[in-house]
């Protein structure tokens, strides 16, 4: 969609070209082409089973693509001389052996890429894991501490690129805010930050750019703002003691009216002034008149539903035709 500015260097850029992954006759990732640029947080959205985790495993060279390619700074992950110094990743909370201490986990990773041992203390400090906690076995860690350890592991090599799969999954409000601020500051330092989440509200707050996929295919690749503007329709929430009458009047003037979950009318078409004037002309009282835009959450839910319907139609084409 929006190509964005062409950067002089591809350093730190993740580029997928016609990336495809099939498991048997199931296509998990389907000719996916996108670029994740440095200096901003890019959100990776998609319903469960859309292929987000598979795509991330393909980027990290853990799974081999059936066709197409994906590179980081122009190179395949497997060709990076010291991968942890180029790319930090967090796939899931289970990347740590429960019987090993956080310190040993990080010390091992540091050793694997010739990273000085003192960096372990630095990242522990950075993510706020106290040294005493880091010496304990990771099995006893809370979800939040485990996630901090995962982020510490991702940051061990001071990488230009960060790839995080559902980093805020299961975290409390404080943990979510911490990750959000950290991701933003890392992007502000010029790094590439690519994170997946199913929490739309969170993406709306954290990501400047969005790559949206459904059923392994690219749905959108655009700024978060443009995505919402393009996909969310402006509407007005209207409350009246006589909603049926108002609804009939509005529909007669070509407006699309639906009943919102709150019991208010969700009116698309006429702006609030027109609605207010219409009600006054017909002597109807108005208790609420709120201009609104659908949130990323709603946009995304609508897109997911489209994808589901599309899938249903693809499976039962004769029914869809009827």
């Amino acid at each position: 969609m929006s190509p964005g500015p062409v950067l002089p260097s591809v350093e730190g850029m993740i580029e997928a070209t016609e990336l495809t992954k099939r498991y048997g006759d199931k296509t998990a990732v389907d000719r996916l082409t996108f670029a994740v640029r440095p200096g901003r947080v890019t959100g990776f959205l998609g319903p469960n089973g859309a292929g987000k985790s598979t795509t991330m495993r393909l980027i990290l060279g853990l799974d081999a693509p059936s066709s197409g390619r994906v590179t980081i700074g122009g190179r395949r992950y497997a060709d990076l001389a010291a991968p942890l110094r180029a790319v930090g990743s967090l796939l899931d909370a289970k990347g740590v052996h429960g019987g090993r201490s956080a310190y040993q986990h990080l010390a091992g990773l540091a050793a694997s890429n010739n990273i000085p041992r003192r960096r372990v203390e630095e990242v522990l400090d950075l993510v706020g894991l106290p040294p005493a906690t880091a010496r304990r076995r990771a099995k006893g860690f809370s979800l939040g501490m485990g996630q901090r350890l995962g982020i510490a592991a991702a940051l061990i090599g001071d990488p230009e690129v960060l790839i995080l799969d559902e980093p805020v999954n299961g975290l409390d409000t404080e943990g979510i805010r911490w990750i959000r601020d950290l991701m933003r500051s890392l992007a502000a330092e010029g790094r590439t930050v690519f994170l997946s989440s199913h929490l739309m509200s969170e993406m709306e707050l954290t990501a400047e750019h969005l790559i949206v996929i459904g059923r392994g295919r690219l749905i959108a690749d655009t700024t978060t703002h443009d995505f919402i503007t393009a996909n969310s329709r402006a509407h007005t929430l209207v409350r009246s003691p006589r909603p049926e009458r108002l609804r009939a009047l509005l529909e007669a003037r070509g407006a699309t009216v639906a009943l919102a979950a709150t019991g208010a009318l969700r009116v698309e078409g006429p702006d609030p002034a027109v609605i207010g004037d219409l009600a006054r002309d017909h002597g109807l009282a108005i208790h609420e008149l709120t201009p609104a835009r659908s949130s990323l959450e709603e946009v995304y839910t609508a897109l997911s539903q489209d994808a589901t319907e599309y899938r249903a139609a693809a499976q039962h084409p004769e029914e869809a035709r009827r």
């Binding site: 990290l60 060279g61 853990l62 497997a78 942890l84 740590v96 890429n113």
Partner: peptide
């Protein structure tokens, strides 16, 4: 997975 991201060879 952690091991192979640290060393993909």
């Amino acid at each position: 997975r952690t091991t192979f991201t640290a060393n993909p060879r």
